[in-house]
Design a protein around this nucleic acid. Sequence first.
DNA 1: GGGCCGAGCCAC
DNA 2: AAACGTGGCTCGGCCC
Length: 596
Amino acid sequence: MPELKLLEQKTSYELIDDPQKLGFAVEELKKHDVLAVDLEATSLDPHNTTILLVQIGTPERAYVFDARKLDLAPLKEILSNEKILKIAQNAKFDYAHLKQNLGIEIVNIFDTFLAERILTTGIKRENSLGAIAQKYLGVELAKETRETFANHTRDFSKKQLDYAASDVLVLFPVYKAQNEALKKEGLDKIANLEFKLVPAVAEMELKGFLIDVKRWREVITDYQKKAKEVAQKIQTELRPHFNHTQTDLFGNKADVVNLNSPSQVLDAFRKVGLDLPSTGEGILSQYDHPLTKLLLEYRGYEKLITAFGENLLSKINKKTKRVHPNYLQIGADTGRFACSNPNLQQIPTDSLFRRCFIVAPGYKLVIADYSQIELRLLAELSGDPVFVKAFKDDQDLHTLTASQMFGIPINKIDKDTRFQAKSINFGLMYGRGARSLGVQLGVSEDAAKQLLQKYFKKYNRVAAWLEKVAKEAVRVGYSTTLGGRKRYYQKANPGEPGWERQVAYIERQGKNTPIQGTSADMTKLALIYVRDRIRREGLDATPIHTVHDEIVVEAREDQAKRTVKIVGEEMKRAGERFLKEVPVKVDAVISDVWEH
DNA sequence: GGGCCGAGCCAC
DNA sequence: AAACGTGGCTCGGCCC
């Protein structure tokens, strides 16, 4: 493959390093309605970085602005101009850097990274600019030059400038190809939603979440103490069954097994006569034995300590004193966000850690989530009249389901019966079968099968819809959401080994994806609405976190009441763009800590 | 000593 | 050990 040699092609670039050139460049760029944007900086952290170069390209020419020699404030006229479309690869990065360091907000974005993800969801995950340029243009980008900008202090080499310019010039043909493909696949609507969301995501990351470090450490110590006690109980229980009981220098009896090693635990338990097929939670919880109970307890504490303990504190930004997770805008193939470094979407709900997520002095948290959104979507999408009516009447769906299934009046449904109905309601959205339902409910596969039959008799539209979308996913090779998102499936070939298993897997994904994916569309639209409304009203409030059906906003104390009202309204408004029959319900509260 | 993988487990 | 969808993180254990 040929390397992209700019100067040998029609395209060229110009280094802008004095105010006069800057003025000319801005005037020239203003004439265009589509521009490509990129920047080079010394670090990935917008709070601790120096912007070195800002590149803005037309199809013919790249302007490379030297950010160290120039005040780039005049670029605002271009970058914040909503009439000019800005093409960027992973625009979140450029948005955050420019906003934090130059106070410039990019408006009207086409993100080639997100576009590629939207076009290939389910069949490809490599969306680097190099891979994209290769795919659409058949050229290699000199990506190793990128790293040379880290901690860069000297003048730029020609190679660096070439690289900077080529990165931005390559965006044009990529944009054209992607834009066409998006329209052809009917993906332009969802792409626009994702593009509009970029500023909200970037600002969420910029703002971050404040943590009460002192309290956090107390919580760790607390869990450590508990873990140690349980661990000692287990070691004491096991010790007599080991021949070589050793003592350490202080005469303490040494551990006979590493409780964090599944294989060691399996062996040790075998010695006591506990012969387990594995040490998974599903197995341990089936045995009524002191050791299995203790091990589960130990694992619970250990998980909390290792995954959420000191490690999370190490992610606190030295400058801002807050954690700034990486929000992967289309992290899951269904369209959901994923989150990392740290993953704030998996902080244990009922643990003491949740209460350590706090606000800056003078601020409050507004925490809002959609009530039972996935079940409401199942009702809406299937159009099942019983299901829909339950939500319209604001009934407890699980109790109603139990009543329908067993022919018992609603006020006579006990906890156990409701739990059975609830398990089915949720399980169906995951394509759950009779066997695994039986395991959860502690009944035979046959009994579970009968429960499902009873269920589907009452909710036959649910059954029909699930069957329809499952088969469709296999037949057409993709699933769709109400927001117009597509999730493609790898083709399974009949006759291949494991073909049936693959088909069954796609069928389950086909059942779940429209529900989970539409829920993602909804929350994303809500984030856009919430941000817009906050800005329109000039409130001091920022969405700082989202967990699939939840949005967390940090709002100035005296504006918290207004904020909670508008967050609720805007989430509802976004929800009603998707739910036409079924009512949308949003629970929104004001709090000092991240806890509902 | 770094990379990779599976097991296990947290969230929705 | 799999079972029921979507992820990320940590560990042990293995490789080179």
